[in-house]
C-alpha cells in the first residue's frame, strides 16, 4: 500500500491525523505531512478509514 495525497485538494482538516497519527501529521504550519508512505499492514484498515473520511477526498491508495 502506498499513500498518496493530492496537495491541491488537501486543506489540512487533520481528520486523517485523528484516525492514523502514525501516518499523517498536520503541523503548526497547517500543512499535512505524510510520515509513512508505505504503512505496515496493521495500519491499513485505519488508513482506508482516513481515505473515506477525508472531507476533501484528497487521499488515495496505490498498490
Amino acid at each position: 500500500m502506498k499513500v498518496v495525497v493530492d496537495f491541491d485538494l488537501c486543506e489540512s482538516n487533520a481528520v486523517c491525523m485523528g484516525i492514523a497519527p502514525e501516518v499523517f501529521e498536520v503541523r503548526d504550519d497547517d500543512m499535512l505531512y505524510v510520515l509513512d508512505e508505505h504503512p505496515d499492514a496493521a495500519l491499513h484498515d485505519r488508513v482506508r478509514e482516513a481515505v473515506s473520511r477525508c472531507p476533501k477526498q484528497a487521499i488515495s491508495l496505490e498498490d
Partner: peptide, 12 residues
C-alpha cells in the same frame, strides 16, 4: 476558526 488541528484534537 482556521485552527484545523485543534478541531480534531478537540473531537478526540
Amino acid at each position: 476558526w482556521n485552527r484545523p488541528r485543534q478541531a480534531i484534537q478537540a473531537r478526540q
